[in-house]
Amino acid sequence: MKSIADIKAIRDKMQARIVNRDNSDAELETRIVVGMATCGIAAGARPVFNEFVDLVAAKGMHNVKVTRTGCLGMCKLEPIVEIFVPGEEKVTYVKVDPDKAKEIFTRHIVGGQVVSEYLIGEQ
């Protein structure tokens, strides 16, 4: 069974990477932001958040962060995910589920192409 002591190995691996980073990395960070108010949680935001976390971790993308935010004011379109890529316009995806999260990750975060069929204007 895993224990807190096992975390030391991961820490050592990640620390070696951080030493090699320079300050410009923070400005190049992509953020995946999942709405996590009551409306988002009830609509399925938690598995969407965790799907993105696992995808980013599996791919080892150190410049991508997955975070939460509150109500975005469009409860019927939850779960809502906003993608912030440095130097680009914010992209808002709506009614996201774990399968759509996989597609958004592959096509947008990795591939750099917006997944237009899940955009707010298409729903």
Partner: peptide
């Protein structure tokens, strides 16, 4: 306790979250 072990590694790093989820599930 986790943060004390992690030092300057953020606890919300995707790799850390995935590890901690498995630790919690097992326990």
């Amino acid at each position: 306790e986790i943060k004390a072990e992690l030092g300057d590694i953020p606890i919300d790093s995707p790799e850390i979250i995935s590890f901690l989820r498995n630790l919690l599930k097992e326990n």
